[in-house]
């Protein structure tokens, strides 16, 4: 394999792997969110997760 070919293969592999994983995470979040009827777990995050004041 030439240098250029291996560099391109390496970059493509990295990009594909990362994108596939990211897409899987986002899609799974969407499906679960829809099933549970939760719009966003965004900046407010889950209040149930915060330690409540004693």
């Amino acid at each position: 394999m030439t240098h250029a070919a291996s560099v391109i293969t390496g970059y493509l592999l990295a990009a594909t792997a990362t994108l596939t994983y990211a897409a899987w995470v986002v899609r799974r979040g969407r499906t679960l969110g829809r099933d549970l009827g939760i719009d966003t777990t965004g900046s407010a995050d889950d209040p149930s997760d915060r330690p409540s004041p004693p």
């Binding site: 986002v26 979040g29 679960l32 969110g33 939760i38 966003t40 965004g42 407010a44």
Partner: peptide, 8 residues
């Protein structure tokens, strides 16, 4: 549905 302003 896991996005927020910060993560966007």
């Amino acid at each position: 549905m896991t996005g927020s302003l910060a993560t966007r």
